[in-house]
Design a protein around this nucleic acid. Sequence first.
RNA 1: GCUGACGUAGCUCAAUCGGUAGAGCAGCCGCCUUGUAAGCGGCAGGUUGUGGGUUCGAGUCCCUCCGUCAGCUCCA
Length: 641
Amino acid sequence: MSSDLIQVTLPDGMSLELPAGSTSRDVALAIGPGLARAALAAEVGGKLVDLDRPLGSDAAVRLITERDPEALPLLRHSSAHILATAVRTLRPGAEIGFGPAIEEGFYYDFGVEEPFTPGDLEAFEAQMRDVIASDYAFERRRVTKAEAAELFSDDPLKLERLEEFTDDDVITVYRDGPFLDLCLGPHLPSTGRLRHFKLLSTAGAYWRGDESRQMLQRIYGTAFFRRRDLEAHIERLEEAKRRDHRTLGRELDLFTVDRRVGSGLILWRPNGTIVRDEIEAFERELILRHGYRIVCTPHIMSERLFEISGHLENFADNMFGAMELEGGRYRPKPMNCPGHICLFQAEQRSYRELPIRYAEFGTVYRYERSGVLHGMLRVRGFTQDDAHVFCTREQVPDEIEALLTLVDEMLTVFGYPYTVVLATRPEKALGTPGEWNDAISVLAAVLDRRGVEYRVDEGGGAFYGPKLDFELIDAIGRPWQGPTVQLDFNLPERFAIEYIGADNERRRPVMLHRVLVGSMERFVGGLIEHYAGAFPLWLAPEQVRVLPVSEAWSGEAGEFVAALGESGIRATIARRESLSYRIREGELRKVPYMCVIGEREVSGGTVAVRIRGRGRKQETVVRGVFIEQVLHDIRHRAPGP
RNA sequence: GCUGACGUAGCUCAAUCGGUAGAGCAGCCGCCUUGUAAGCGGCAGGUUGUGGGUUCGAGUCCCUCCGUCAGCUCCA
């Protein structure tokens, strides 16, 4: 084989011979002109590179087209550069920060004197279209640190970033038309490849996420290869807006926030309280079956307790201030664990009692900065469905396994698919690496045994122990934080909790923290959005609304409502205004069933049942049968109607 | 907390250049007696988030504080 030929291996095992110095683009051309047009970048030897990078030596090349999962982040990263190109044209003085692709799109941070306005976004979009029309090639150049410093002499933020390189580092810059950026790449071949994009919002963002640093102006946008994907994405954003729990919470009388009470503090209205109570009742039933004991602990506790637990040391920034009472200092509790430990220690414990599982719907208070508060999803006071399991080391696998069952039972009822994340030892951690590895392998073994798929989050654990996080996916595909199960190496030591072993020796139990819904406030807020306010029958504040066609049938309707009520069904009667008006109201309130009673229904003892969202496709049912069906669905916590 | 935007009736929104704050829905009172997403009429509802300033005159311009929203950071 001649030395000026290189051997290229393709993913399907085929190989090509090309002249030395060929690029991935040449590979694509050799395969076919269609692929050459479609190719965006290439994976060479496992690394993503620009299409026009010369292939060093014999190489395995995989061409990336828009069908590959790597393509979208690539498109979005290039979009960020195109945005910056446009911004620099219209605002020549703008300093450039970072501009990465993110999950849903991209952003770019700029240092500007005058913050951007929504009107600026339109102007930037128009300018971006110019940049796209010019179809500038993305050109990569390797430079030395000194050269880069020269190129970015007017860009203080880039110079600061450059400081982190050594003189020997390979530094690359990318140019598209008038714009030059310090960037690792790779990029699309040219700006003309961007077609479908939209700038979405602008907001302040600290340089490098550090609030002691300069505040930059961030522009968020998104981009897709196909118009319909962009349109679907915008539709999803609008759908999310329609489901906003703050709007639905007001429309459906679920909760309110009153500035006189304070920010981040939720007032549960009667309808919202029904939803919450049903969830709590369901969970009580579930955990009692799983061997939990339900306890209650106070809202405020002596500060001394939080010294012992270490919260004062590690969590003080999130705790409400102390109140002085007869020389003692008390704090609203930020977590329930110390109280549960005191309950454990209320008696001398024998190994025969273990595992002990204490559960509490415990309300905790945490100080959150005003800027982060958000409806029910981020608040300062919330009720956790908290539980702590005290057990022996040997019992841990069984306890974890039982928790997996519990989590699954619970999430299935709400129709949430979920994924599992195993979070391992962070850099700063208590306990020995050996202890951690043991604990992590126990968790992993249980997951494997149950055939549960999971992702590992290296270093994502708390400083006091590894954890399992369950991430929920809601009805429109958004992730939510779900249950967590956490091992704790810290508190058992700090409180020196003990039980007497079979050998009559004092032993230290293992402690597990776990929540299922986490915060009632957040969970219900999430559920409102998940269901778009249309709660399944068992959760619906109003389950049945009875509509007499006219006043003439209101006596009959009233008797039916009474019968529903006696069966434990939440039912009301609506008799004012026209039937159409009442139907509309019932639909807007998202009542699962509306029962119409008029002349036609009276003789046969039936009702015309209108099912939420199904319009006029209704059924006429004998009243007793309807009640039985409703009770059945409530009892089984059916997902419908 | 920080940056920016916003704050008008319970809700959704109007109010020209600084010139008497207005509508729909909801509420209340009547009429209608209703057959599947708004029957008709009337009434009431406001110190325009708060406090100050500029002005003959402020919802509108300026400042303060409060709150909300989008983010930054963090987390249940």
